[in-house]
């Protein structure tokens, strides 16, 4: 009988955890502490309006989908760049920004200040919204 209960507990845990992730993954969250990144730290120049810094890993399936979404937006938007980093080779930044999962995306404004953070497979509508807010702040 124990086995049946453990199987049911495993199913309940799965549904709770998976359901929570489905609700929260890929949403853009504003970053209030606002640390910043520059070309020296990233090894690649920033976009003149905004920059997506994506942390990826080899063993990460949603990273590819996220890369596609961000690359497409960057290609369509003037002044926006997309930098895709391998988290395993940039553990310094992973530690500095407390990144626990891939993909994690940091959205930087024109000055390299981290304005938004997207954990999990990025949703296009969320990314576009966050980008508009960053751009508006830049314009103001």
């Amino acid at each position: 009988m124990t086995g049946v209960w453990i199987a049911l507990a495993a199913l309940a845990l799965t549904l709770a955890f998976g359901g929570y992730r489905r609700l929260t993954d890929g949403r853009a969250k504003p970053v209030r502490t606002a640390p910043s990144l520059d070309e020296g730290a990233l090894g690649s120049p920033l976009g003149s309006q905004a920059t997506f810094v994506q942390f990826s890993a080899t063993v990460c399936a949603p990273c590819r989908a996220t890369h596609r979404v961000l690359a497409e937006i960057a290609a369509d938007t003037e002044g926006v760049r997309h930098i895709d980093l391998n988290a395993e080779t940039r553990l310094d930044l992973v530690e500095e920004f407390g990144i626990t999962r891939t993909p994690t995306v940091l959205l930087l404004d024109a000055d390299g200040v981290v304005r938004n953070r997207i954990v999990g497979a990025a949703r296009k509508s969320e990314v576009v919204n966050a980008l508009q807010q960053v751009d508006r702040a830049v314009a103001a």
């Binding site: 507990a9 998976g18 063993v59 530690e95 999962r101």
Partner: peptide
């Protein structure tokens, strides 16, 4: 076996890879 089942169910139901998520934590 219970945790292996959770990982398999997450993959089957949500297409979510638990091991992949732990990978970066392990690296850190």
């Amino acid at each position: 076996v219970g945790f292996a089942l959770v990982a398999a169910l997450l993959n089957a139901i949500f297409d979510f890879c638990l091991g992949c998520e732990l990978y970066l934590l392990g690296k850190r």
